[in-house]
């Protein structure tokens, strides 16, 4: 174990712990733009620099291991001034569009600029906008809003294992792109959206049917994905009784990862084809009915069949897409009321 002092607080951590994590262990939050616990530290944004007594330079807390006896200041004037200057540099290259940006309120850059008092005045925001890359069906890429934190690149490489995108060009011309630069849809991207999930600004944004901002969100509801059997945990973001976005949950077994279906495949919920009324076939066509009528009819026919032909005339298909509770009740009806074990489902398919 290593002992050090952070902002006057004594901290004890295991060898190899970064200053960032050491600070976190005593509830000192150091701001970051490029850090993600799941990824190898990259040290790109430099926002997390802290003052370590005895060192001339500010040390990036995400990549610098805590060492015995370190005395660290995470909020000194020198640190704050450097952070502000770095943010000003980023901001200067960023479109001054917070008023109309869908990310406003959830944007890490915006939040940090607020925290460190960066003002739009005095800087010259970009005048000529690069056209949005809308080629992918599920998300957009806005090169101008990209701050090159590289999280998308690293998520794609380290977590998703696709390496569909990377940095191209260098220096001030650096940008995120892919071979031949014809648009994201023409890369090897599998549209998992795990990059979109981690983007700190509005550079990568999910395509949404309607505009909304964070304060329009009525609620976020934690649930389990309805597609494959991995059971990824996610938050449904709700506005006006509609899912407007899906966020991957960090604390599920999926650790913040989803696939294209889980992340972007929710619009069937509001599809116009949804069944909204019980339907009864009459003369070869369906007509709408009330629940009472439909349930009475089904219960009546089932009783009839049972009385007439007995248990063996019944069968039910349970569902691998319904809940445990749904399935339990169905098998209970089949077994308890019709006294048959003729129940199965498509587990084999």
């Amino acid at each position: 174990m290593i002992k050090l002092t952070i902002d006057g607080i004594g901290v004890e951590v295991e060898k190899g712990t970064s200053i960032l994590d050491a600070a976190k262990s005593v509830a000192i939050n150091i701001p970051t733009l490029c850090h993600d616990d799941r990824l190898k530290p990259s040290g790109a944004c430099r926002i997390c620099g802290v003052e370590v007594e005895g060192s001339d330079e500010l040390q990036a807390s995400c990549t610098t291991p805590a060492r015995e006896g370190m005395v660290i200041h995470t909020r000194s004037d020198r640190v704050a001034a450097a952070r502000k200057q770095l943010l000003e540099l980023i901001w200067e290259d960023h479109p001054n569009e917070c008023l109309s940006c869908q990310k406003a309120g959830e944007c890490t850059l915006q939040d940090l600029c607020y925290d460190y008092g960066v003002e739009a005045e005095g800087f010259a925001p970009l005048k000529v906008r690069t056209p949005l890359d809308t080629s992918n069906p599920f998300y957009t890429f806005d090169k101008d809003k990209c701050i090159l934190c590289g999280k998308c690149v690293r998520v794609c490489e380290e977590l998703q294992g696709e390496s569909a995108i990377h940095f191209v060009q260098r220096g001030h011309e650096t940008m995120i792109s892919h071979p031949f630069e014809k648009g994201m849809a023409f890369s090897t991207c599998v549209s998992c959206g795990n990059c979109v999930q981690v983007c700190p600004t509005a550079a990568l944004m999910p395509k949404t049917e309607e505009k909304f901002r964070v304060w329009d969100i009525e609620k976020k509801v934690r649930t389990t994905c309805s597609y494959c059997g991995v059971g990824c945990q996610l938050d449904l973001v709700i506005k006006d009784n509609k899912v407007v976005r899906v966020d991957a949950a960090r604390d599920g077994e999926n650790e913040g990862m989803l696939c294209v279906k889980g992340k972007f495949g929710y619009s069937f919920l509001n599809h116009k084809d949804r069944l909204t009324m019980p339907l009864i076939r009459e003369g070869g066509v369906f007509r709408e009915a009330s629940w009472d009528e439909a349930l009475d009819l089904v219960a009546g026919r089932m009783t009839e069949v049972y009385d007439h032909s007995g248990s063996d005339a019944f069968a039910a298909f349970a569902s691998a897409r319904c809940t445990n509770e749904d399935n339990y009740v169905l098998q209970k009806m089949m077994r308890g009321i019709f006294k048959t074990n003729n129940i199965d489902h498509c587990a084999r398919l």
């Binding site: 944004c45 770095l86 090159l148 260098r170 001030h172 011309e173 650096t174």
Partner: peptide
């Protein structure tokens, strides 16, 4: 240095240009 910056970290990429 501006031309040869790799573009990874903020101060070198944005700061030298500034």
């Amino acid at each position: 240095s501006v031309e040869e910056s790799c573009g990874k970290c903020t101060p070198c990429r944005e700061g030298t240009k500034k």
